[in-house]
Amino acid sequence: MLFQQIVINALIRASELGLLAIGLTVTYDILKFANFAHVEFACIGAFLAYTMNVTLGMNIILAGLVAILVVGVLSIFIDRLVFIRLRGASSIALMVTSLGLGIALRNGVRAIWGARIKGYAIGLQNPVELIGVRITPVQIFIILTSVISMVIIHLILKRTKLGKAMRATSANPALAQACGIHTERIVRWVWFMGASLAALGGIMIGLDTHLTPRMGFSVMIPVFAISILGGLGNPYGAMVGALILGLTENIGLYTDLGKILTLNGLIGNLTGLYIPTGYKLAISFIIMIVVLLWRPSGIMGKRER
């Protein structure tokens, strides 16, 4: 197997999870709690797009865009309904609330759409071969979409008034309010951004594999690991974290540790020493813990005090 292929596989994985993780980290930056219901927005978005794409026969891109907007609005609605009442509460209280919300949303999806495996009306993709790498058109689309969204996020954060206001609110909400920034409006924007990014990520996962009501929940732990790895609150960190996770999972399982330990046969003869595949999930956690020992606030996290 070619090394390029492994990098591409890692890139696909990173694109999907990166979108989710950026959304999570952006909301964390303002709301200061790890939202366990975040991944459910991905699931809801993917299923809304499914309904429009398959049931109503809309174009998948259009369906996706509408779904993303709807999920963004839904998240604001949820904020008005639930989280607005908990503004001053401890982050643990918020986490547990989002936990309950996540259970309700996940099973809501299940109640509405059922548990059957679903897929978008894009047919089975046939891969094309580029520089010895096999990749399907949809996967190229996934990588491009996520790169474009990341650029857009970057522009919003750095070049717009909204971005500036967000940074101010994140650093010191009271001061921001005093400077005339309408912090509640910022919070709404942040919910919208975070949830629609999650929905986009969910649709990407749906395009790449298939849809089930647990598609969000099943990526929750890697998404959290990515945001922590990169540094909570930092979208660029999330991008880096996603890449690291994708690469370690793919390269970690592929690398023959025996060859590395013996410097490719220089000392002794030891081959076929691989990390057991059962530990795939653990690889990302161990990387995460190692990184945190080195930098307690993640790779690009904000320094404390």
């Binding site: 099943s218 999972e249 399982l253």
Partner: peptide, 12 residues
């Protein structure tokens, strides 16, 4: 079970 990405396992 229940993962979205089995490419690393397949490559292996």
């Amino acid at each position: 079970r229940e993962k979205a990405d089995y490419r690393p396992e397949l490559q292996r």
